[in-house]
Each structure stands twice: as C-alpha cells, then as structure tokens.
Computed example of a mutant assay.
Amino acid sequence: MTSASTLVPVRPMTTSERTQRRRRRTGLGLALPAVLVMAGLTIIPIVAVLQRAISGDGRAAFVRLVDSPDFVQVLGNTLVWTVVSVVGALVLGHAAALLMHSKHLRGAGLWRGLFMIPWIIPNVVGATVWKWNFSIDYGLVNHALLQAGILSEPIGWLSDPTVVLYALAIVQVWFTAPFIMLMVSAALTSIPDERLEAARIDGAGGLAVLRHIILPAIRPTTGLSALLMVVWALNSFTIIWVATGGGPAGSSTILPILIYQAF
C-alpha cells in the first residue's frame, strides 16, 4: 500500500519581497525603451552593412580594394600611423597625468582643463587649424622651428611624402593624449598614499616608485587605454581626409581612407 504524496505548502511572499519584485519590474520597464532603441541603432546598421557587403556591388568593392596597387603601401602606412599615434598618446598622456598628480604643481585643475581642450575641439576644426600650422608659407610650426634655430629652411610637412604621415600622427596624438591623461589621472587617485609614503621611507627613489608601484597599479587602465587608442587609430578618417585627403601620392593614405575610396 503506497502512501499518499504530501504537498509542500508555498510560503507566502513578504511585503519586502513584493516591494523588491515590484521595483525590479519597474526598473526593467523604464529601461526597456532605451534598450530597444540602442539595440535597433546597433543591429540595423550592422545588418545593413553586411547586406551591402555581400551584394554584387560590395563584392566588387572588395575586389577593387584588394587589387589596388597601393594596398600593401596602405597597410604599411596604417601600421606606422597606428604605432606612432598610440605610443605617442600613451607616453604624453601618462606624463601629463603624473605631472598633474604631482603635489609640487600649482593650479593643477587649471592646467588639466587647458590640457583637455584638444579633446573637446571637433576633429574637423582641429585638423583645419593644424593644416594651417603646417603650412610651408605661413605655418606656425615652421616659424617656431626656424626661430629656434632647429631648421635652416621650411619643411613641407603636408607635401613631403617622407614626413606627412608622422606630422598627421602628431595631430592624432594631440587629439587623444588628453583622454589618456584623464584615464590615468583617475587611476592614480586609487593608489593609497600610505603605500607611496612607505616606499619613500624605505629609501625608494622617484623612478623606483614609478616602476614598482605606480605603473603596476595603473596597468589595467593603461591596457584599456591602449586598446581604445588602437581602435581609434584604425578608425581615424577625419584628420587625414581634411588635412591631405590621403596625399601626396598616397603617402598618407591609411586603410579607412582606402576603404572610403573603394566603396
């Protein structure tokens, strides 16, 4: 003879649990429209790009891109552009952050605000200003270097194929270094002062503190910043297009410029 199964009574929800569930539903309901909009703005362009890429015109554009006689040169230009702009932004941004974090610097807030100006300026405006500055006739760069005795004659920064890519990379560094400074400055505030004071009491010099305490502490921020810089460098278009259009003779053409021309 089998015994009848017993039913486990369901515990009624408490007022606190009902309130939490109601709050979760309210939060999801409020966030749902924004989530749907962001999903639409993300998914629809991706689908449209893939649809265009696999179409006949898209495949023909890819063939033109790969078969371009300048394709290998463009890949080399892209590598040089990425390395110079990313390394320059990381070095300058870290140096500026360490300087802003120094206790010996007065008016750090003012200097930090001035250093952030390039990050605020639109790329088109900044690229146009630097195009004027690099002018061989009236540019401030040649004028300053000639007055300092560094140059004996003006240089065509945007017309010389051997220097144009490096000159434009300096502009990219000028635009992106403030972001690195902001990220690293935020990471420096998370380092306890007690750790730095203990290292100095033990006799560690400035370079030892930088190498063994500061740089390891901000390593995650440095890695994330470097990744973002690489992505931005590989997607750069405005600076080069406004300043040179990829010239002269394709010496400043990088992959985004070539893709734009191909498609």
Score class of each variant (00 low, 15 high):
24 R>Q: 08
31 A>T: 06
63 V>S: 07
71 F>P: 01
56 G>H: 13
40 G>V: 06
78 T>P: 03
55 S>C: 04
74 V>N: 02
76 G>F: 00
57 D>T: 06
27 G>E: 11
53 A>M: 08
63 V>D: 11
28 L>E: 13
62 F>T: 01
46 I>G: 02
63 V>P: 01
68 S>E: 01
35 V>E: 12
63 V>N: 07
36 L>E: 14
54 I>Q: 08
64 R>K: 06
30 L>Q: 13
42 T>E: 00
43 I>A: 05
48 A>M: 02
19 T>A: 08
59 R>A: 15
41 L>H: 05
32 L>F: 15
24 R>I: 08
56 G>F: 10
54 I>G: 04
28 L>P: 05
57 D>R: 08
39 A>R: 02
51 Q>K: 01
60 A>K: 08
70 D>S: 04
60 A>G: 07
39 A>I: 04
24 R>D: 08
23 R>S: 03
33 P>Y: 15
67 D>N: 13
54 I>L: 07
44 I>P: 02
28 L>R: 12
47 V>Y: 11
53 A>F: 09
60 A>D: 13
57 D>N: 09
31 A>K: 01
42 T>S: 00
46 I>H: 02
75 L>V: 11
35 V>Y: 14
34 A>I: 02
52 R>V: 00
63 V>M: 10
69 P>E: 09
37 V>C: 12
69 P>Y: 12
42 T>R: 03
26 T>I: 02
30 L>M: 14
26 T>H: 04
72 V>G: 11
64 R>W: 01
69 P>S: 11
38 M>Q: 03
37 V>N: 12
21 R>F: 01
54 I>F: 08
30 L>E: 11
27 G>L: 11
33 P>S: 15
72 V>L: 13
55 S>M: 05
30 L>G: 11
52 R>K: 05
61 A>W: 03
39 A>Y: 01
65 L>R: 04
27 G>K: 07
31 A>F: 05
69 P>N: 09
58 G>D: 10
62 F>S: 00
60 A>W: 07
28 L>M: 13
56 G>S: 13
71 F>Q: 03
58 G>M: 08
53 A>T: 09
78 T>I: 03
41 L>M: 06
31 A>H: 00
66 V>H: 10
43 I>D: 06
64 R>N: 04
34 A>Q: 07
49 V>M: 13
29 G>E: 14
47 V>P: 00
27 G>V: 07
18 R>A: 11
23 R>A: 02
22 R>D: 11
69 P>C: 10
36 L>N: 15
59 R>Y: 09
73 Q>Y: 08
78 T>Q: 01
76 G>S: 01
27 G>Y: 06
47 V>W: 10
46 I>Q: 03
42 T>H: 00
26 T>V: 06
66 V>C: 11
68 S>A: 09
65 L>D: 06
66 V>Q: 07
32 L>G: 12
23 R>F: 04
27 G>S: 07
45 P>K: 05
22 R>L: 13
52 R>M: 04
66 V>F: 15
20 Q>Y: 03
34 A>S: 09
61 A>C: 10
25 R>E: 13
63 V>R: 05
22 R>T: 14
43 I>Q: 02
76 G>M: 01
29 G>F: 12
52 R>G: 05
36 L>C: 15
46 I>C: 05
36 L>R: 14
55 S>A: 10
33 P>M: 15
39 A>L: 03
22 R>K: 14
60 A>I: 02
31 A>L: 10
30 L>V: 12
18 R>M: 12
43 I>P: 06
25 R>P: 07
72 V>F: 10
